[in-house]
Design a protein around this nucleic acid. Structure first.
Length: 960
RNA sequence: GCAGGGGUAGCCAAGCCCGGUCAACGGCGCAAGGCUUAGGACCUUGUCCAGAAGUGGUUCCGCGGUUCGAAUCCGCGCCCCUGCACCA
């Protein structure tokens, strides 16, 4: 009987939302729990992987709700930036990929037509996220509080946030070099390629440009990442095939490639191209190197790429494999040399000069590595690897050698910056920024690095802010543990961050200068606080124009009084007071959950903005990071499943099966591939549990059974450990016990002839309730099936306690289980089919000795003392002989035991009566007669002398 | 480069912070038996090696160390992975 999961889900989500159990209401005096997950950006559809973190959050929130908390679990979306614009553009030009995806998701043509408008895209995707994802998954979210970063009221909040940062002195202005499209302004370079169409892996490199004087006063300008190597300069490379220009920069004439001049113009105040410069005419001339003043010859090289750096290269053959091979090739290329008049003597002058001592390398590593790797041509692709290798080891381990003047003996790592700074201040060098690979804007135009002279930053480098944030982070619950420790380093490492951008983006205008739009990360740091206000905005109780500085100062910081604020804003006083008291009730935020990509971006700024703006008692209490659901190759793909739209997956597998999959497949802190079959496996498990609940509801008897006390006890220990798991948000362990261990408890109960209706009913109530946080729909259905009213979702789960009585009940059953396992083991090894099983219970003196050993305060029982104690009480000579061996045995057993084991070992039970009571059960399970004796009963049957093996908790066994 | 993470039985994956409860949770796969043979089923048991007695042996990337005792702590080595700023 397959369950109709879809129907069950629809039924319960409707019921919950109609009954408004999802709406968050402060109840003064009652505990609260406030959790969010980092809201997603509305750049397109989400996939099944995204639901992992959201579902985890919902399960935690539901659990909190069922354990005595009022919960606040609001959701929103992030629309700042150009994601929605890009989306709309694609629809507008009929991009088949974009349009097909929409059609595949069942979007009608008239709706698609509307999506040419970015605002419509935001609206549309907001609806998709809320209805098709979050509501579909049954989230306990207060939908009245939904907000989006481009709502006018949200903007008011962001303006206020920026004003607070400004008054705290945390907004600063300085030049910035940002990747930008000439057409569209600054763009983000990242692998997901939100803003760009090519080059997502490029980075902005900071080159030192070194100026080499020509005789005529012009300067050849080379861009390098290794300014410290000027001591090893032997020659200069110019590409005779390339067109260079004379560019006037800061009153000097620089010779650079035409492309470089264009780039320079974006970064320097005044760059004037005066005319073209012929590369060939420079050949065999000399130029003066910066810093050392050495005159070096100019040689031809086809490797000077006009698009890279300045299009000119300085040559350091000692440490740059490319330069060395260039020289080798040039020496052989007599035709080229004759053409440009390069003599043998000039070649000899360009012999490599050792400048860096690197452990593991000789004095000329470039030569060494090219020989080792067998590189003898500039065409060899291995050159790049060789360069990287030398650069890496040289940079980290190298030391400048004795010819390096004032830098001799300095590690390269330090010398590099020191030399750059020295040459910069003497005017022999300059800085130049370039991208490591070609980047193209969405529009197809080139992305180049552009200087923005008046860029605004949030000063996350501020020492006081950093210190306060670090200190506070130490008091937070940050999971996983590794990230808790890492957070200190991340906060320390965080620098100023650009917080506004130019161009046509969605977002809030910068209140201090309207030409800027507040950037996407800056407007998403303090927003948990805004969910307190959003409800009032959504319901029209506060309008954006009432959201003044005084308004937010009052509701979030408690500044001023509601009467005055009501007068100045026009917002009714009672509304102001209500918001203010909600703010106080729900804050601080208990958990912010987000994907691992937030670890070095969002979480630190989230923290620092709270610290900078809100009062300390309102700073967030916890962060949980989740890893991803992936497919082989890293991204969700069609082949492994998972590419289907979320509603389709929900239809196919069932929401609860997906929720169970997310919660159990692995710890939150590892990546896991999506796998259709696994999800099906979880769905099957839910169906089995459903059948088991039905079966348990068949239990009807009124009379007690011997196993009743055990089931009740077991429920208590389960509750106890389950709550302990949830204290650390260890949902996986929780799920493992509830869905995989607890079913066995019930099975064992029935197997042991348990049949008491009220006992089962009580245990079942607990069990179904424990399922509700993770698989709420099926849990509600079970709840209803078992004749219960109300929602299981609002039921309060008991805390669970473990006392001595409970331990004894558990120990009794453990005796039976161990006995059966031992018999099974013996049967397996011997191949016997027992006709009779003789069970011999350990004598009293062994129990006493065990108790004595357990009572040892150091946990290291004293064997001689144990022997002495037993000898006096034991009477039979045969038993006396056993004493020393058993004493040793008991001692090691006690030493090895954990605290829980000791409790169990120490539980004093009357084994004889426990086994006698279970005799019928054992006979039926073992399929033979069972006889129970005391091991020291002379009347027992023990032809094989097994009786002496009897230990407390593990009786001796004889089979025949 | 900066800041971090990881290597566990056929596969996935717990455990590692707080050493003994660990031959090592759980799932998947596989095997045997049962139940049924409408069903991607379900139930029980087993699944490192050895064993006619409940046991012993060998394991948690490799090598060393600390300890009565190490998958867990320390050192070295090999291999793999993640995030990194106007992308949320």
């Amino acid at each position: 009987m397959a369950l109709d999961f879809s129907a069950i889900e629809a039924k319960w989500r409707k019921a919950w939302y109609e009954a408004k159990v999802n709406e968050s209401v402060p109840v003064p005096g009652k505990k609260k729990f406030f959790m969010i997950f980092a809201y997603p950006g509305v750049t397109g559809y989400l996939h099944v992987g995204h639901m992992r973190g959201y579902t985890f959050s919902d399960a935690v929130v539901r659990y909190k709700m069922m354990t005595g908390h009022q919960v606040l679990f609001p959701v929103g979306t992030h629309a700042t930036g150009n994601g929605a614009i890009t989306f709309a553009r694609r629809v507008e030009r009929g991009d088949p990929v974009a349009v097909d995806v929409l059609r595949a998701n069942g979007v009608p043509e008239e709706t698609i037509a509307k999506l040419k408008d970015p605002m419509e895209v935001v609206k549309f995707l907001n609806d998709v996220f809320i209805n098709d994802y979050w509501k579909r998954f049954g989230f306990m979210s207060d939908w009245r509080r939904f907000t989006c970063t481009i709502y006018p009221d949200y903007s008011k909040f962001i303006e206020w946030q920026m004003r607070k940062l400004m008054s705290e002195g945390l907004l600063i202005q300085k030049p910035y070099f940002a990747p930008a499209c000439l057409e569209h302004g600054p763009v983000a370079i990242d692998a997901s390629e939100t803003d760009i169409s090519k080059g997502g892996n490029a980075e902005v490199l900071e080159y030192t440009v070194l100026k080499f004087d020509l005789e005529d006063g012009r300067k050849l300008v080379a861009a390098t990442l290794r300014p410290e190597t000027v001591f090893g300069l032997t020659n200069f490379w110019v590409n005779p095939e390339v067109e260079y220009v004379d560019a006037q920069v800061d009153g000097e004439i620089w010779v650079v490639s035409r492309e470089a001049a264009e780039k320079l113009a974006l970064q320097k105040d005044k760059v004037l191209v005066k005319g073209s410069a012929d590369g060939a005419s420079l050949m065999a001339k000399r130029c003066r190197a910066p810093y050392t003043g050495k005159m070096i010859p100019i040689f031809p090289s086809v490797l000077c790429d006009p698009n890279v750096g300045t299009g000119l290269v300085m040559s350091v053959p000692s440490d740059a494999p490319v330069d060395w091979i260039g020289l080798v090739e040039l020496r052989k290329d007599t035709a080229q040399r004759e053409r440009y008049g390069i003599t043998d003597q000039m070649m000899d002058e360009a012999a490599p000069i050792p400048i860096i001592d690197t452990p593991g390398w000789g004095s000329l590593p470039a030569i060494e590595i090219t020989e080792r790797m067998g590189i003898d041509s500039l065409a060899d692709p291995k050159l790049e690897e060789a360069t990287k290798e030398i650069y890496k080891t040289g940079f980290h381990k190298g030391v400048m050698n004795e010819i390096c003047g004032g830098f001799a003996g300095q590690p390269v790592e330090r010398a590099k910056d020191a030399m750059r700074d020295e040459m910069l201040s003497s005017g022999q060098a300059d800085l130049f920024y370039d991208l490591s690979e070609e980047v193209l804007c969405r529009c197809g135009g080139k992305v180049l690095v552009k200087k923005i002279p008046d860029q605004w930053f949030i000063d996350y480098a501020s020492p006081t802010l950093t210190e306060r944030a670090k200190e506070h982070a130490l008091t937070m619950k940050i999971l996983p543990r590794e990230y808790y420790e890492n957070m200190q380093a991340v906060l320390e490492w965080y620098r100023e961050r650009a917080c506004v951008r130019l161009g046509n983006w969605l977002g809030t205008r910068f209140p201090f200068d309207q030409k800027w739009i507040i950037e996407a990360i800056a407007d998403s740091t303090l927003y948990p606080a805004y969910y307190i206000v959003s409800r009032y905005a959504n319901e029209g109780l506060v309008r954006p124009d009432g959201m003044t500085e005084e308004f937010f100062d009052f509701v979030m910081l408690g500044k001023g009084n509601s009467e005055a604020v009501a007068t100045s804003t026009g917002v009714p006083r009672e509304t102001l007071d209500a918001i203010r008291s909600e703010f106080e009730y729900w804050h601080p935020l208990d958990i912010n959950l987000g994907g691992k990509e937030h670890m070095t971006v969002h979480f630190p700024v989230f923290l620092m903005n709270h610290v900078a703006i809100l009062r300390p008692e309102h700073w967030p209490r916890g962060i949980i990071v989740n890893w991803y659901i992936t497919a082989t190759g890293g991204k969700i793909s069609k082949s492994k499943g998972g590419a289907q739209p979320i509603p389709d997956a929900a239809e196919r597998f069932g929401v609860d099966a997906m929720r169970l999959f997310y919660a159990h497949i692995a710890s939150l802190y590892v990546d896991v591939p999506w796998d259709d079959e696994k999800v099906e496996g979880y769905r099957d498990r839910l169906e089995r549990l459903w059948s088991q609940v039905q079966e348990l509801l068949e239990v009807r008897a009124d009379e007690e059974s011997g196993i009743d006390a055990w089931l009740a006890a077991r429920m208590q220990t389960r509750l106890f450990t389950l709550h302990r798991y949830m204290d650390t948000y260890d949902l996986r362990s929780y799920v493992n016990d509830v869905y995989f261990e607890m079913p066995r408890d019930f099975k064992w109960y029935l197997r042991r002839y348990g049949k008491n209706k009220s006992v089962v009913s009580k245990a079942l109530e607990t069990w179904i309730a424990l399922m509700a946080p993770v698989t709420p729909h099926i849990a509600e259905e079970m709840w209803q099936l078992s004749g219960r009213e109300q929602f299981v979702s609002t039921y309060q789960i008991q805390p669970g306690s473990v006392d001595e009585h409970i331990i004894i009940e558990e120990a009794k059953e453990r005796l039976i289980e161990r006995l059966m396992a031992d018999v099974a083991e013996i049967v397996k090894v011997t191949g016997l089919e027992p006709k009779r099983t003789v069970v011999m219970v350990a004598p009293k003196w062994k129990q006493e000795m065990l108790a004595m050993a357990l009572s040892d305060p150091k946990g290291k029982p004293d064997v001689p003392a144990l022997i002495k104690g037993a000898i006096s009480t034991v009477e039979s000579p045969a038993a006396k002989k056993e004493v020393p061996a058993y004493a040793k045995d008991v001692s090691t057993e006690v030493m090895k035991a954990s605290a829980e084991d000791r409790q169990m070992l120490g539980a004093l039970i009357d084994e004889m009566s426990v086994l006698s009571a279970a005799k019928g059960f054992l006979e039926s399970e073992l399929g033979c007669a069972v006889e129970i004796f005391a091991a020291d009963d002379p009347g027992r049957a023990d032809p094989k002398g097994k009786a002496r093996l009897a230990k407390p908790g593990r009786p001796a066994i004889y089979l025949e």
